[in-house]
Design a protein around this nucleic acid. Sequence first.
DNA 1: ATGGCTACGATCCGTAGA
Length: 261
Amino acid sequence: MKLATWNVNSLRVRLPHLTDWLAQAQPDIVCVQELKCEDAKFPRAELEAAGYQSAISGQKTYNGVAILSRSALLDVSTGIAGFQDEHKRVIAATLGELRVICVYCPNGQAVGSEKYAYKLRWFAALKEYLAAELSRHPGLAVAGDFNVAPEDRDVHDPKAWEGQVHVSEAERSAWRALLALGLKDSFRLFEQPEKIYSWWDYRMMGFRRNAGLRIDHVLVSAELAKRCTACKVDKAPRKLERPSDHAPVIADFAEDQSISA
DNA sequence: ATGGCTACGATCCGTAGA
């Protein structure tokens, strides 16, 4: 079973990239962020033709999240329970034994800004929400654009980025608070090559220089981590004409139903 | 050198992303 996350930076612009990638990568479930698309304009039929059902929470111009799946999406919920938010950043659904939560965490703009304070409030609310979800769903995956590079090795130039938004101590602390719930960064369950990132600035030839950050993540509960066999960034769509600035991250899971071997 | 792209919705520039 393959579970992916991809910030497409406008679903309307990126739909051909998305459908081509679905055909090539064959994920079973995809968490999509930055739809920038109202629900009424969501290309449901095109994605159904590609073999995927959709659960969506969209809005005009900004934000917007969706979960695409080859199988039925049940118990769909949107937003963070108990947290008032104008932004459409969270959607969750159940697929059999698996609970999937798709997140588009706030950018934060700059350390000390109002948006940064909102980002930290948002992460605190997310943590409480995930704690409750974990207590109900042992098989939980939280996938999306977290807008946090957890460690210096997730940053192309840690010196230049030191203290900046996406890497600041408060943001990394908020990230570690999610791990403290028992969630694992699926990427770090495995040996990885150095300098692997999931986002590259459009400017200054960021992708050519591999000047990136690893900010898109697939977190898994302890139960799900046992079944996780790989996690990789797929850079291929970032090489296309008019790409998203993010690349998809894809995690693999054994279909193992047994308790012990 | 605090810029540099890209998407969007409103114009021929501002907001936002990261």
